[in-house]
Nucleic acid binder design. Structure first.
Ligand code: MN
Ligand code: MN
Ligand code: ZN
Ligand code: ZN
Lengths: 140, 140
DNA sequence: CCATTTATTAGACAAAGTCCAATCTTTAGT
DNA sequence: ACTAAAGATTGGACTTTGTCTAATAAATGG
């Protein structure tokens, strides 16, 4: 039951498991997300991977994040009107969103149940359910 | 119990009730949202108010929507990574989001209950809870 | 009226994200 | 190893959403 650590090496394996050819840039981007287990925006990811020396372009960051998303290696979180956050956690879960700091905190979906939702409109299927609890530093 | 209709005249009253000075442009923008009771983006609102003859600038559309939001006359809905939707319904409610058409459908919050949410992080208070059910034209 | 405050405007600007054609890298076949 | 084809990366142009600013216009109050 030991939690696996995330190294660049097993990033390559992870990418292969998802049918993605592991290039240098893709490994670095995956490692930025999985190594930290945080919710990062594209520009934050770009800053991380180019911290030591610049080696990954903006186009590649976006290409790669969209590729990861298509292969369901990561998911997007839409909470901030000005930027998308990318989430290495693809298991069903929800979020606290700190409106002051723009930080996201995971909420395991297993513990949560939602009741009383109306029927889906005719001919529609559910793609996902997002619960976002917008929070703010409190009152006293 | 007759549902009130939304005319430009009672838009002016509505604005005054919220401490907003009712100008021609503000009335048109409010009427675009409340008259339709739909979820519209800023550019859709701009198209609506300038349909007959152009009279409202982009700056005023954004100024006005932000003003309405501050006075809690409308709220924002963040579901689409590329644009904000404005919602004339400020009572607590949730949304179906049609991923094909980008249409939003209201879900009354009274019927819905959410259980098992973890405690808020220390010193934080809830500003709001958003439930978004992403839907898509179904399977057969 | 006149003076002051409030609202609107065009257009410059900023930031997030996409697109493209050129280049670089990898792969597979010989 | 050499080559051709396919795949990945790149800088920079471009688009879209939204903000900002300084000038103008409209409303308000005395
Ligand atoms: Mn490196
Ligand atoms: Mn008019
Ligand atoms: Zn998450
Ligand atoms: Zn709504």
């Amino acid at each position: 039951m030991e939690k696996q650590s995330y190294t660049r090496d097993n990033m390559a394996d992870l990418l292969r498991e998802h049918g993605i050819n592991p290039t240098h840039q893709r490994i670095e981007i995956a490692y930025a997300l999985f190594g930290r287990q945080e919710h990062l925006s594209a520009d934050q990811i770009m800053a991380v991977v180019n911290d030591r020396h610049s080696e990954t372009s903006k186009a590649t960051v976006y290409n790669t994040l969209n590729l990861f998303k298509q292969h369901q290696l990561i998911r997007e979180v839409i909470v901030d009107p000005s930027k998308v956050f990318y989430d290495p956690n693809t298991s069903p879960h929800h979020h606290f969103f700190n409106l002051e700091t723009s930080e996201l905190i995971d909420i395991d979906a297993d513990a949560v149940q939602i009741q009383g939702l109306p029927q889906l409109p005719e001919g529609m299927v559910t793609e996902g359910v997002d619960v976002i609890i917008r929070i703010r530093p409190g009152n006293h």
